[in-house]
Amino acid sequence: MSAVLRMLPPAFWGLSLVCVFAAFTQPQFLSLSFLMILLRQAAPLGLVALGQTFVIANRSLDLSVGATIALVNLIVAHAMWKGYPPSILIFLALGTGVVIGLTNGVLVTVLRGSAVVVTLGTAAIITGLGFLYSGGAPGSSVPEVIKWLGRGRIGVVPVSGLVWLTFGIVAWVLLRRLALGRYIFAAGDNPSAATYSGIPVNRTLLVSHVLSGFFAALGGLVLTGLVGTGALNLGADYVLSSIVAVILGGAVFGGGAGGAVGTMLGTALLVMVLNLLTVFGVDEPGKLIVQGLVIAAAAILYQQGRRGG
């Protein structure tokens, strides 16, 4: 039983608490229609955070997700793709994410650069390339299919929510049912022990970064659909938010807890809290403060739990 409790991420408790709080103070918050609006808003971040889960569980970090989102947005919205089938564009966007992830992965595993600095570096490069590509003036020709991905609904359920759920299941399978996930958690907990067990530590880390790039691009696609146009610096705040969602989800540097479900709960908690704050009239500064406090609290709780026993 204690093992089960231990596996529950901090986000589970947080989310329960927030729901109870909302039920008493802002009951309309828990209505189906509002929850669906929240879901649509959470989906792009949720996708990016799923990707971030792989790298953070693998004791690494991807700070280039924001720049990846921005680049995907600029590519998709660029006027030069007018008339091309959207499937090519989607393929191109996701391919860009994979290439970025691959670059990060190679730099981190082969050249052994610190993931923090490497992904900062690639983020700068991607940002520059985005500016050069768009000439500083983002286009606005986002294909309808992509807009549908971001804004459309099937019945009451937002399409983006379904995409998030689908890829959440994919991530869960990768992390909890395939050898890859076992490798990620093992290497994240102790890379040296993983090596001595015969686990291909470098290849695992490389794949984690590729997945992070792919999920960031996917999140970028959905976000572009939601926004409906090209925009400079789209997704800049997703770097921090995706990390927060993963920390809340409990998948910090191996640890064994958390994973896809944890991160999805973490994303939900973060989006709920930020919206609740809006309802209570708390502005950007207050949100930043709460967000920081939440990261610190989750990280400290996690660390204490890890030390105990």
Binding site: R59, S60, G113, V117, V118, G121, I125, P191, V201, L205
Partner: peptide, 27 residues
């Protein structure tokens, strides 16, 4: 173009951390 400055800065950063190969990969 100032846009290139991003690219150059990124390349510098990546080169600098790659110069001294560490034992472990990751953070």
């Amino acid at each position: 173009s100032p846009y290139y400055q991003f690219v150059v800065k990124g390349v510098l950063l990546v080169t600098a951390v790659s110069l001294f190969r560490r034992k472990e990969a990751g953070l």
